[in-house]
Design a protein around this nucleic acid. Structure first.
Lengths: 195, 195
DNA sequence: GGCTCTCTAGAGGTCGGACTCTAGAAGGCA
DNA sequence: TGCCTTCTAGAGTCCGACCTCTAGAGAGCC
């Protein structure tokens, strides 16, 4: 009988909680079994191995994040950059566990061991994301005269840096951080450049 | 007979290399034994356990980094902030393995399990570093009117974000990055603020 | 040469985590 | 009611990592 006593997302939630309490290697099958109060049979019925579980944790987090940001790319370049920075901050505040997953970085999730379908799903989303970013960079080059490396620092890396300080320490993200990020992005994108 | 066939720093170098190839949990005693071509007896003669080895790897990296930056705090605030940003970039280029150690973050090195003397050494250096940062923040508040959170983002987190993109991907840090970081810091610290 | 003391080599003990396997619980359907 | 099919429980195997322990190598000193 298809009973489905346990919810798959509850297992992923437990894994994300373990990660928040340590590193990605804190996500062990034994740990998930304890944290989610589930048997090993239930875990292995859903995920063929630990790598597939890690892949599911990562893909769920990154797809949720991207889905919230995609609509913001439609705006005019500088406005889009500011909106992306602000929304990055607020998304991290609203989804601290998934934010910790992204902060940890793909490399810790052993993507080389993932099953093919997890890898394909990730690459499909990554390609779509990269395409959005490339279009935005092109627009910002025309609007501000900055080079690619400079734009990526201001638009992508700076909001990441803003939230990292608080997420990695387990502290709440200050309410003023959106304004701080916006000011920094605007200043770095629009200030006069010295000769 | 005090023979000292193996150098302790060679063991730490091997550990840093293992970290660069993966996460901090890639630093296993078995891995160090292989990577440094050393017996387990030699490792445990120097370090009572794995936590002490991790502590030595972390402390060596962070102390080397801080030692290079301390002299730069003596300058006038905005100039000091710019110099710190530039030197952070160049230090990471010159010491990629240690830069990867710092990038990984203290939390991955299980500081709770460290022996007391490693913990004391870390806290002493951290206190000295915090004191320098606090003085700089005070100076920058007076010079620019920014709040603490905004200054920390611009001065501390932004240079970190600039190098992270390249270090985590294992790519070389571009020669232009110092200039990019300097422009971003100056712009964010000195631009007019909207009401 | 003998003695000491530091350091090394490497065999094993122990433990925890990944994964397998089998018995069975329980809804839907004839 | 009895069968099928999905899902669960949990015991058990295997493997790798941390750490211990002992025998001994080799410089310095008498």
């Amino acid at each position: 009988m298809p009973r489905l006593v346990h919810d798959t997302s509850a297992i992923l939630d437990a894994a994300a909680r373990l990660l928040a309490a340590g590193s990605a290697d804190a996500i062990t099958i034994a740990g998930v079994i304890r944290e989610a109060a589930v048997s090993s049979g239930s875990v292995y019925h859903r995920f063929p191995n630990r790598a597939a579980l890690l892949a599911a944790v990562w893909n769920r987090a990154v797809q949720g994040f991207h889905a919230e940001l995609y609509p913001l790319f439609d705006d005019e370049p500088v406005a889009a950059a500011v909106a992306l920075g602000r929304r990055t901050v607020s998304w991290c505040r609203d989804h601290p566990a998934d934010a910790r997953v992204l902060l940890t970085g793909l490399g810790s999730f052993e993507p080389a061991a993932w099953p093919a379908e997890s890898r394909d799903a990730r690459e499909a989303d990554q390609a779509r994301w990269d395409q959005h970013i490339r279009r935005l960079v092109t627009g910002l080059k025309a609007a501000t005269g900055r080079a690619t490396a400079e734009i990526l620092l201001i638009v992508v890396d700076l909001p990441y840096a803003a939230v990292r300080r608080y997420l990695s320490a387990g502290r709440d993200i200050p309410a003023a951080l959106e304004d701080i990020v916006e000011r920094a992005i605007r200043a770095a994108l629009t200030a006069d450049r010295r000769p």
